[in-house]
Nucleic acid binder design. Structure first.
Lengths: 215, 215
DNA sequence: TGCTAATTGGTAGTGACTCTCAAAAGTGAG
DNA sequence: CTCACTTTTGAGAGTCACTACCAATTAGCA
């Protein structure tokens, strides 16, 4: 795989650079305040003040309060990787590899990892954020269903197709929350592997495998 | 003079009967108004007026606007049925039968069916309601995980267990939305059967089965 | 420098939801 | 039936996310 986007820092106009900085400032201030004093206890006005922008600007950058923490474009990224997998590959394998590639892409810098950690810790504790996460996952499922339909040449509104992807994403959701609940100390790649093992083997065996010790 | 044996209805106190009627009145008014003029276009005040109660009372009966449509206790019901299944039965089979039993229980009267239809039609079109549905499903997943853990004698926070149930519920969620999207015309029991077929066979085969004709 | 278009801040809403408190209605005993 | 008592209700004020709009500022470019 060729590396995708080289940093075109200088090519971005001053306007775009300022927008990016503002966006980052809002998110950073929000995550810090949420962590310090709680999500519900932090009104938008306070975030705006901390980020040195007006409340209107906060809403201009993020449609909802939850999106300040969660908005990202990994959905699209995963779909791109999925569509890039060879056509002969079984769907579950293609999905696994697409997820692998997406994770690798996201986890490129130490800074990015720490950022995700901070945000995920919030997701673990705030119900509203978990709900928003599900919403994103559901949207992701819809687009992946389309992709899979094209792959197999079937209608995207086929029940079997939707159930298949619903099951995979439902399993991945639990894996993600499990990872976060254990304070993100485990290797996410290993967890994804175990998740796909359950999907491939245990569901068919109709009995989840029992491990002796929980690593 | 002692009257004849009072009907079982009378066992409920006047207070409880009034509460039940108020609850029903609010829900009925809400569903009607939501259907007629849209969910977002219907403020709580209007529902209160239509149900002939104060806005405060609406919030006393339903914690959120979404819950007016969605609040029910089928979660607990399904868990009861699941726990009642014989211990030697494979988990997926036990789940399937528990869901069957729950559906049969809910679909007992024609009136109940029509009520569910009306509410589900709303769920299909209103994003906020779909989000709330997922929340309920997630909670259901958590309690079912506990039940399954007791069944198999493992820790309830085991990754494999959570992924297993997450996958099943993720698949069922899609089945439910598929059913609703097709205007609830299909037989729900048949859809559940097809869903479990995917979970048992197609996931392991790693390729969703392709049907020649879609229903 | 001056024109144009994008970005921002402020102001005034709407509506869900919370808290509090006093009025009203059901309950149970004498 | 009447008198406490408890529960339920309604009304008011308040918080906060989010929207719509308009005026002021600022970047992009000739």
């Amino acid at each position: 795989m060729a590396p995708m986007t080289p940093p075109p820092v200088a090519k971005i106009s001053l306007r775009e650079r300022k927008k990016l900085r503002t966006r980052q400032a809002i998110r950073r201030a929000a995550v810090r305040l949420f962590t310090e004093q709680g999500y519900d206890a932090t009104p938008i006005d306070q975030i705006a003040e901390a980020a040195e922008v007006s409340p209107s600007t906060v809403f201009r950058y993020f449609p909802t309060k939850e999106d300040i923490v969660l908005m990202d474009e990994d959905d699209a990224l995963m779909e791109v990787f999925f569509r890039a997998r060879p056509a002969h590959e079984p769907p579950l394998t293609a999905l696994r590899e697409a997820i692998r590639a997406t994770l690798a892409q996201i986890y490129d810098t130490e800074e990015a990892v720490e950022d995700i950690r901070r945000r995920m810790r919030l997701v673990a504790t705030v119900p509203a954020l978990r709900a928003r996460l599900d919403e994103g996952l559901s949207a992701s499922g819809a687009s992946m269903t389309d992709a899979l339909a094209e792959r197999t040449g079937t209608a995207p509104d086929q029940l079997e197709l939707r159930v298949f992807l619903g099951a995979v994403l439902g399993g991945l959701r639990e894996a993600l929350l499990y990872w976060v609940a254990r304070d993100l100390s485990d290797d996410l790649g290993a967890i994804v592997d175990r998740t796909f093992d359950v999907l491939e083997h245990d569901l068919a065996d109709s009995a989840p495998r029992v491990e002796e010790a929980a690593g």
